[in-house]
């Protein structure tokens, strides 16, 4: 059974159709990379899965249950068990590191475990403006994991990291997935991220998923010149 299943999802913004019939299926424990030109609708796709955006048509199923049908949200965002790491992290500036996790998960033991894992325990009394870029990023991940999501969505999580941090972050993601059954969908611009992290990659272009599959397959037989363009180094 697929964790995420999209059937013919369409989305338009002020008359302009951004997604025109997206079909997608992601299996449990899989890591899917989504790649595409700027403005292709990658963020919109993730937001639709999370229930933050309503489509015009199509169906979205989560864990085998219908979540969105047509433009009707059947499962509200807070019942979807989805962790979302936004492009700008979206931390709550008025809350301390500890309070961030407390809002999400009431168990002190679990909070401590997560904060220690992400090396944030010492910083638990600080607020986002006092944290460094890397620390903020780790807090965003810790917050997303604190709700014990079955599905983690990441919107260009690597874009603001230096090379060293990027490497560490990739390893962290892989480590997290090993520890527990977690499905990951992430948006990226970097073919290297796809190569090192993803089981499968979906190329989104002109409102549809142009091609999907393992990286090697796509590189060996690209369906469209843009696929090679996006995925080659």
């Amino acid at each position: 059974m697929a964790v995420v299943l999209l059937k013919g999802v369409r989305k338009r913004f002020s008359g302009e159709e951004v997604l025109r019939g997206v079909d997608l299926s992601v299996s449990p424990g899989e890591i899917l990379a989504v790649i595409g030109l700027s403005g292709a609708g990658k963020s919109t796709l993730l937001r639709l899965i999370a229930g933050l955006e309503t489509p015009e048509a199509g169906e979205i199923h989560l864990y085998g249950k219908p979540a969105t049908r047509g433009s009707q949200i059947l499962l509200p965002p807070w019942e979807r068990k989805i962790g979302f790491i936004f492009q700008n992290l979206a931390l709550w500036e008025h809350l301390t590191v500890y309070e961030h996790l407390e809002f999400v998960n009431r168990e002190p033991a679990r909070i401590k475990e997560l904060l220690s894992f992400f090396e944030l325990w010492e910083l638990r009394k600080k607020r986002p403006p006092e944290l460094s870029g890397g620390q903020r990023q780790r807090l965003a991940i810790a917050r997303a994991l604190a709700q014990e999501p079955a599905l983690l969505l990441l919107d260009e999580p690597f874009s603001n990291l230096d090379m060293v941090r990027k490497k560490k972050f990739r390893q962290e993601l892989l480590r997290i997935r090993e520890r527990r059954e977690l499905t990951l969908i992430y948006v990226t611009h970097d073919p290297l991220d796809v190569k090192l992290l993803a089981d499968r990659v979906a190329v989104i272009h002109e409102g549809v998923i142009l091609q999907e599959g393992p990286l090697e397959t796509l590189l060996a037989a690209p369906a469209h010149p843009i696929v090679r363009e996006l995925l080659s180094f």
Binding site: A50, L52, W78, R80, I82, F84, F86, N88, W92, F103
Partner: peptide, 22 residues
């Protein structure tokens, strides 16, 4: 996004009091 990351966890009223109002 600050509100939306709250909405992934809790219903609107709680997000309003815990995120929006502060």
């Amino acid at each position: 996004e600050a509100e939306e990351s709250g909405l992934l966890l809790a219903p609107p009223l709680k997000v309003f009091t815990r995120v929006t109002l502060p």
